[in-house]
Simulated assay, not measured.
Amino acid sequence: MTEDGMTWTGDPIWLADVLRDAGLRVIEHEGWRDRGHGDFEDLRGVLCHHTAGGGPDDWRTVQYGRPGLEGPLAQLVLERDGTYRVIAAGVCWHAGSGSWPGWPTNNANYHVIGIEAVSSGDGTDWTPAQLDAYKRGCAAILCRIDRAADDCVAHREYSTEGKIDPAGIDMDEFRRDVQAFIDGEDAPMSAAEVTELKDFITAFCGPIGSDVKDIREQLCGGGQRDTGQYAGWPQLNNRTVVDALADIYARLERLER
């Protein structure tokens, strides 16, 4: 709700600025502020889609339409590298028939912003940069219209026409992260992101966990590995590395006096 208690009304001509303010990359398509199928009634949320193409020219279909359906088909296109294309500020044909609590039944086009994220549609080709930008962009828009993550909705959740988009995204987890951004927190990593990070570390450093004992041994002495004791190193007069450095530091201080 706005400060006067009313739902935000008018076309979102602020889209590009709001996304940039959230630290996102933005491409503004010429004429986007005047593009659309009429004006919004009020704004109540964000509807999430995938393009079902996956290529660099998916935005063309969103902007210009396809046979039997005139474009624009969404206000925003999210590229695989996390860049947003701002296509239109007016109403777009993207929602179809459906319902969601607090949204007008079968009339969401006049009340929600559509984001078409570039993807083949099989749920396997999302990139970390794209998913992060998806959540941050939704959070930024919802903050602007004073709505919570409950109004960030998958097309499949809204639709009564059997839609599946955005395939492969757990919307409960997605909304949790969106709300964290709305609340000014760093959203926790998903299980998939944790796995990807582990794989990255393993590729460069070897299996996670294999070097922990080696590091601990270097710092605390050979006894650490075998007995769990901070036995220190014989060549350091049975001191650990930290204790040996502390002793050196103390000796240097005495020499300076």
Rank of each mutant, 00 (worst) to 15 (best):
M1Q: 12
E3L: 12
G5F: 12
M6K: 15
M6E: 15
I13D: 06
I13F: 02
A16D: 06
D21E: 15
A22K: 09
A22E: 14
G23Q: 14
V26W: 12
V26T: 09
I27L: 11
I27Q: 11
E28Q: 07
E28I: 02
H29A: 01
W32I: 00
R33H: 05
R33Q: 13
H37K: 02
D39F: 03
F40A: 07
V46W: 06
T51H: 07
A52Q: 08
G53E: 14
G53Q: 13
G54V: 01
G54K: 04
D58Y: 09
T61V: 10
T61A: 14
Y64R: 14
G65H: 09
G65W: 10
P67R: 04
L69I: 10
Q75A: 03
Q75G: 02
Q75S: 04
E79S: 05
D81N: 15
T83C: 12
Y84V: 00
A88S: 07
A88C: 03
G90E: 05
A95Q: 05
G96K: 10
S97K: 14
S97E: 14
G98P: 03
W100S: 05
P101T: 07
W103G: 02
W103S: 03
T105H: 10
T105G: 02
N106I: 00
N106G: 01
A108F: 11
Y110A: 13
Y110P: 04
I113T: 03
I115Q: 00
S120T: 08
G121Y: 12
D122T: 06
G123A: 00
T124K: 10
D125M: 02
W126M: 01
Y134S: 05
R136E: 04
R136L: 04
G137E: 06
G137W: 06
A140K: 01
I141Q: 03
I141T: 04
R144V: 01
R147T: 03
A148Y: 08
D150R: 10
C152T: 03
V153A: 09
H155F: 03
R156D: 05
Y158F: 15
G162A: 00
G162K: 01
D165H: 03
A167D: 01
A167L: 00
D172F: 12
Q179H: 07
A180M: 11
D186V: 07
A187T: 03
A192N: 03
E193K: 10
F200E: 08
I201V: 12
A203Y: 06
S210Q: 08
S210R: 07
D211W: 14
D211K: 13
V212Q: 13
K213H: 14
E217W: 09
L219W: 15
G222Q: 15
R225Y: 13
R225Q: 14
G228C: 15
G228F: 14
G228P: 14
Q229F: 08
W233G: 06
P234S: 11
Q235I: 09
Q235F: 11
N237H: 10
V242L: 08
L245R: 10
Y249S: 11
Y249V: 10
A250T: 11
A250W: 07
L252V: 11
E253K: 12
E253F: 08
R254A: 15
E256T: 10
